[in-house]
Amino acid sequence: MTRPVTVVTGGSRGIGAAVCLRLAADGHDVALGYVRDAGAAETVAEGVRAAGGRCVAVRMDTSVAADVDRLFDTAEDRLGPVTGLVNNAGVTGPLGRLADTDTAVLRRVVDVNVLGALLCARRAARLMTPRGTGVIVNVSSAAATLGSPGEYVHYAATKAAVDALTVGLAKELGPDGIRVTAVAPGTTDTDIHAAMGAPDRAHQAAPRIPLRRPGQPEEIAAAVSWLMSPDASYTTGTVLRVAGGM
């Protein structure tokens, strides 16, 4: 059987890297989009290949339409027809109150988390609709419903937009045979916390989480893989919360 070909954005680290490796283990070939760290991207690509999958890594920025087209074009040229998209790339900016957040940070968070997700979903829809099949999984956040006051209200707002995208696009593309879902992780133990200026944040949050620990990237990846699988064939328009009870 032909292996599914899945595009994963933000695939060089954290949840994205775990998704790439899990999908490869579950039979996918992977086109990995990354924005900066070529070495990390190649390490993930090697892991995909070790798991039996083919992989191409493409340096790109999801907020740039030409870059998105290049990622999908490379996937189609090198791996075959794209059957899936994991819209994972996202940024938070530094922790802080909205009143203290720089306009450039707000613009970048919206550009990557909302515009980037829209551009990638649009390209996937254009490819999948004529074929009558496909799966899109967006990576949202529990922040979309919690609001994240005092930390990153702006990030939470963009993830609420991702939830709306998921629901609306699922209804739009359902008649074309395309499923659209999302995973909403809670606090997860990745290096994104260091990037926002609080490297110990995931473990400091543990007492507030009903399961009393942060999630692991592999736990989020397992949910993504299930949503992309035939076992989820009647699941669309849903946001699956993987947040330890938050």
Rank of each mutant, 00 (worst) to 15 (best):
M1Y: 07
R3I: 04
G10I: 09
S12M: 05
G14S: 09
R22M: 05
L23P: 01
V30Y: 05
V35K: 15
V35S: 15
A41F: 11
T43I: 10
T43H: 11
A45S: 14
G47P: 07
V48I: 04
A51T: 00
T62S: 04
T62C: 04
S63P: 09
D77Y: 03
R78I: 03
L79C: 11
P81M: 07
V82P: 02
N87V: 13
L95C: 10
L95N: 04
V109H: 00
V112S: 12
V114L: 03
A117V: 13
L119C: 13
A121E: 12
R123E: 03
A124T: 06
R126Y: 11
R131S: 05
E151C: 03
L165V: 01
E172Y: 05
D176A: 14
D176T: 05
G177M: 05
R179A: 04
V183I: 02
P185V: 06
D191K: 12
D191F: 09
H193Q: 14
H193A: 13
A195Q: 15
A202F: 07
Q204H: 15
Q204V: 14
A205D: 07
R212W: 07
G215L: 02
E218D: 15
A221F: 00
S225F: 01
Y234W: 14
T235Y: 08
A243D: 15
G244E: 11
